[in-house]
Design a binder for these strands. Structure first.
Lengths: 190, 190
DNA sequence: AAAATATGTTACCGAGTGGTTACAAATATA
DNA sequence: TATATTTGTAACCACTCGGTAACATATTTT
């Protein structure tokens, strides 16, 4: 049998990503990862020092929220920028299943194992939110609405509807986008 | 030893509430509930038919979101009503730890065990949201912001900060409240 | 009082968890 | 080629999980 440590490490790493993406934070465990990777779990301990080390290494690598990094080279925050960024951010959020599960994870715990992972994720998220950094009503409204976007995105995994709102319809998300845009406009005119 | 079925059922019931409130959805389990109640877990199966039945019974009883019911006798949705309801709802949300954990739960799963529980909870929540039932930008913005409120409330259990926003400061929540109010005003003026 | 029933506990089951140890075999080094 | 070292597996550990069965005792019914 062929033996290749690097290849094995990659298998483990990708198994971790895959499980987090598909099963969510609750599915992440040593046994599940080892099984998914098709590898003995002992190796996860030997190579990464257990789940903790794996998370740490993952946090340092941090290859999630990729497309958000495109928004990094920002200028001063104009209204048009804000609207554009908002649209990009919501689009990215709804497409990036992995990011969703990390955000979901943050609603469940915050211990030494996940600390680094979350810290890095948040520096990524910050790049969107930090566009408008003033302590204004617009900023607060903006943050609330982005938070709501996150909430409904996470909720839509298990629930088709929220009260009367159909979370499966594309139209709903367009409405949200439009509301977000209009809010920015209204606050700006004021 | 004294024996009293009703008293035992109450112990189990309260243990369930207590655990959900303190440990969240992840802490809810047969063993944990039995231990907290100081009772043999066999009784949970005998009296409630397991965790499923307990959840079902709890859903039917539904004594959470109490203070929201006060808002039930609503008139037509005026702007003032909306503002008032928004303020009441956010206040209730941040105080009602139990409701928070049920909302958190909805972000984790949706199976036959929890289905009824969530369904009832949502009819409660609906009483807030249904105030403004028209398909307007205001309504969408309003929903997003309430969603954001829920999100930040849940997040604040494990995270002190969200980017630059300090979730521990009372001022932050006032800012959110004000932003919500102002959004309602702006949309109304338009 | 005797019999039937309701209530409660303990011990157990199989499955799954994170984590370790002993060992086999492939690869690298001498 | 002989010897270390690395890579990988399988078996095992103690523990927790949901769920059940056997049993003891309190309470009610006859």
């Amino acid at each position: 049998m062929k033996r290749d440590r690097l290849a094995t490490e990659k298998k483990i790493y990708h198994a971790f990503l895959s499980i987090l993406k598909e099963k969510g934070p609750q599915g992440v465990g040593i046994n599940a990862i080892a099984k998914e990777a098709g590898v003995s779990k002992g190796l996860i301990y030997r190579y990464f020092g257990g789940l903790d080390g794996l998370l740490l290494q993952y946090a340092q690598k941090g290859d999630f929220f990729k497309s958000l990094l495109v928004l990094d080279n920002k200028e001063k925050s104009s209204v048009e920028d804000l609207k554009k960024f908002a649209k990009e951010a919501t689009k990215e959020l709804r497409e990036n299943k992995l990011a969703q599960e990390i955000l979901r994870w943050q609603l469940l715990e915050n211990n030494k194992e996940t600390k680094e992972l979350f810290k890095y994720t948040n520096t990524q998220v910050e790049k969107i939110f930090a566009i408008n950094d003033k302590d204004t009503s617009l900023n607060h409204a903006f943050q609330l609405m982005i938070g709501g976007y996150v909430y409904f995105t996470l909720l839509s995994k298990f629930h088709k509807k929220f009260i009367t709102t159909d979370l499966t319809q594309e139209k709903t998300w367009e409405n949200f986008d439009n509301a977000l845009e209009k809010t920015i406009e209204l606050f700006n005119e004021k």
